[in-house]
Nucleic acid binder design. Sequence first.
DNA 1: ACAATATATAAGCAATTACTTATACGATTG
DNA 2: CAATCGTATAAGTAATTGCTTATATATTGT
Lengths: 108, 108
Amino acid sequence: MTAAMQLTNVLKTLADPTRRAVFERIIREGEIAATGLVQGSKVSQPAVSQHLRALRDAGLVAERREGRHIHYRVAPKGLGPLIDWLGHYETFWAERFANLEKLLKESE
Amino acid sequence: MTAAMQLTNVLKTLADPTRRAVFERIIREGEIAATGLVQGSKVSQPAVSQHLRALRDAGLVAERREGRHIHYRVAPKGLGPLIDWLGHYETFWAERFANLEKLLKESE
DNA sequence: ACAATATATAAGCAATTACTTATACGATTG
DNA sequence: CAATCGTATAAGTAATTGCTTATATATTGT
């Protein structure tokens, strides 16, 4: 899988508002089971499950099974392709990007 | 238009590889006419034109008419919604990275 | 005015997407 | 074991997408 394909996957995955909302909720909660995500969601349990699969396939979340529950959490490297891509065009938006690149370097 | 909607537009627009390639070419060239973009593209002139419209509608490029030619250039603020969104979770990433660092140190 | 060039729009179509309901799987409890 | 809970998958569908060819709309030059 090329870097471009990974970036495409990340962008496509985050482009859907419902799915992005799930992702943002996982970010806020730190770790949360699928049931918790279904509660307070506008869509059905299967829809949430499908979004979770898409997020996992894109490398954006990781899961941890605990009995019947599966707890989802953010995969810190998941946004890597996106941040890397932005970094290539840093000169166009250098001032706003400075902080993000600093964070990326610190995470390595 | 809410910030979330603008972000959705930016992500959707960049998620298509062909359209993103057009955007990246505009970045590299600085300013380039639609004809130049069609040359060296895998898709037809109308396809390029449609991609340019999508990029413009998403606020990612601006245009300047010069006679028959329309020159496209990057709109510097176009990626704002994306940068802002990433920055919004900056604290989270920082904490995550800090935890990761802490874990690495503890495992030594 | 006419022809040529640059770009945009229209119409149609196959592929993809995001959802639904129904069902299956997996783990726990009684 | 059976019942139940948490989650995933299957199947179907309406809407969207990205492309094509054909045509329209500028703009310029002869």
